[in-house]
Computed example of a mutant assay.
Amino acid sequence: MKRQSLIFKAPLVLEIREEECPTPHKGEVLVKTLYSAISTGTELLAFTGQIPTWLSLDETLPALRGTFSLPFKYGYACVGEVIAVGKEVAETWLGRKVFAFNPHESAFVASVESLIPLPEGLGEEDLLFLPNMETAINLVQDGRPILGEQVVVFGLGMVGLLTTALLTRFPLSRIVALDRYPLRRKAGMELGITATFDPLSEDVLRGLRSILETLGYHQGADLVFEVSGAPGALNQAVEITGYSGRIVIGSWYGRKPVALDLGGRFHRSRIQMIASQVSTIAPELSGRWNKQRRLEMALEALKWLRPSFWISHRFPFERAAEAFRLLYEYPEDTLQVILTYS
């Protein structure tokens, strides 16, 4: 059986390559891909050559062995249908819809242990948001919002929107978000948050302070999430974080340099900066939480949010290069872009 795989061939260059699809062995199944989602964070960094070539694709995922040394396959959000099973796999798997952390390709072989069956009551396209929802949950767990806090989110890409959606479930006094693009700010406001701002506007800091300093007894944000992917956002985050506040950094900047000003109010304000990355659980939570529990929580969150309404574009797999170009050249027109497979 032949399959088509998306290859990251050079910076800004993609190629669809036909190749032999492996046969499922013991404990494995063959999956025909129905949809895959494109990440506007890590995948765009890979598309533009902004990730160090020596870095592993993902040491925790069997489908993403190797490094970012060109050429390589990438992607980690596929939904498909099981069309063949290997030895010692029950035939009840045949026809089952599943999620896999797998690169963009029309078919693939995976162990049954690595697949996540489509839960009852959840749409196939909603399931594409699973990796980003896991990331959002990890961010919130690392930030540990407290009743009545003022929270600011930098970046309303998909991770930022999902993080903001989770935060609206907490009894916080205010949630404010920043993003360059009106479409994303509109999506944030539709979640019922307090306000949104353009981080590049001249009066953004004044606007933020007018909201965050009205409580009187506590000035500035208690908790800030930086998920914009823009290194300059960190200095803005420091500017609006209050005394002993926390800044959770979920952005991966790749090769982009980060010029961080720690000589101003950062030091005297005792601000904490927390690195958050979904590949691991925070050590202080690992006594009660593991990846399976977090995954189950992410699936439940997808059921109540049903985020597929944020899909702004659907491209046939054959037009994958066009989809990536759209995200790279016109990000202001997009929310979530997915690929569909015939």
Rank of each mutant, 00 (worst) to 15 (best):
W310K: 09
W252F: 06
T280Q: 08
G123K: 15
K303I: 02
P24Q: 10
S251N: 13
P307W: 06
F99P: 00
T135F: 12
F225E: 02
D126K: 09
E296A: 09
N235V: 08
F309H: 14
L166S: 07
A298D: 01
A107F: 06
H313L: 11
T92Q: 15
A230N: 15
F68V: 01
A136Q: 11
R294K: 12
V227T: 05
F129C: 09
G75M: 06
L30S: 00
G220T: 01
V248M: 06
G207K: 09
T340A: 10
A259K: 08
A37D: 06
P231N: 11
W289V: 01
F101H: 06
L34I: 02
E329Y: 08
F317R: 02
L6N: 08
V151L: 05
L12E: 03
S228A: 13
V224N: 10
I193M: 01
R206H: 10
E88T: 13
G220C: 04
M273Q: 14
L191N: 07
L14P: 09
I271E: 14
P62C: 07
G229T: 13
G155C: 11
S69F: 03
L191P: 05
L55W: 12
V153P: 03
E124V: 13
Y76Q: 04
I38A: 05
A301P: 14
R209I: 03
L12R: 12
D222R: 01
T42Q: 15
T42W: 14
L122M: 14
R184N: 05
W54H: 10
T92L: 14
R17T: 06
R169E: 15
E226S: 07
R169A: 14
A100V: 02
I16R: 10
K26H: 08
K303W: 10
S39H: 12
S5D: 08
T164C: 04
F108H: 05
L61P: 05
L178C: 09
P316R: 09
I175H: 04
S308L: 08
L30E: 00
P52L: 01
D261T: 13
F266E: 02
D142S: 15
A233I: 01
S36V: 15
R209C: 03
V79C: 10
A320K: 02
F315N: 01
T42P: 15
L302N: 04
T53P: 04
D58M: 14
T33I: 09
R255I: 06
Y181W: 10
E113S: 15
V248K: 04
T164Y: 02
Q336R: 15
L161F: 03
R184V: 00
